[in-house]
Amino acid sequence: MSKILKPKDIPEEEFILSGTRACSGCGLSLAYRFALKALGKNTIITVPASCSTVLHGMYPCAAVNLPMLNTAFESTGASASGIRAALNILGKKDITVLAWAGDGGTTDIGIQSLSGAAERGTDIIYACYDNEAYMNTGTQRSGSTPFGAYTTTTPSGKKQRRKNMPKIMAAHGIPYVATANAVYPIDLFQKFRRAKDEFKGDTRYIHIFSPCPPGWGFEPQDLIKIGKLGTETGIWDLYEIINGKFTLNNITMKIVQGKIKRKPVVDYFRAQKRFNTLSNNAIRRIQEEIDKKFQEYENSFA
């Protein structure tokens, strides 16, 4: 990424008001706050059934100071398409349309309407905040729940691998795909800004790692620690795919360049109760996979 922003470069205007219904230590609220700062006032949002629905408040009190349309669980891509179509015909093309959905709403039930919207090249930014399970309904497993994680529907740990949603979106040929991490807000801000300013007119997709204290089993005050461990151990990489070209950014790039030492994955797993049933052997296997992935990164980028 071109210019590295500093905290003073982030606008002071807040779009999330006090009194949201999010849990304390929620990664989603942190990510949302900075995403909205990046997109600014001239934005319309649509949100499916999710933790975000709850975050926005309960009628007649709203906790977000931007127009937002609630939509059904599987319909976020279509809802954003409808807003876009109406804005186009009403001559309001400059307004940014943000679709903001969780991992269940994106990778499972909503993948069809998202894929349709992306295939049509709909002028929207679609963001998936990924807390790696259906948290709003009480932590059931999703297609984005990682191997080994406890959820209420995988009481002995998930037996399957997760979907790689950013790669699925990149395969649609859209011009901008990025990953972000809720605990690196400046990187996240910059990616939303870039999506808005540099790729207007087509579908842009940002997938955000979004730790969840009650769902993952860590204390709210540990949000930043857990989030950072996700990237510092190489579990959640920060990258962009711009017109098909893959580049690593921020901490992940620094690890590959040898500027920061990568931490062992066991630090990440053992800091959360949801991986209590993950065996040491399994953790060793995952470590080997991560090592192999980073060897490939080094071959390409170091």
Partner: peptide, 9 residues
């Protein structure tokens, strides 16, 4: 859904 969102808009 497109109709719902476009009509709301």
């Amino acid at each position: 859904t497109v109709c719902i969102a476009a009509s709301t808009t």
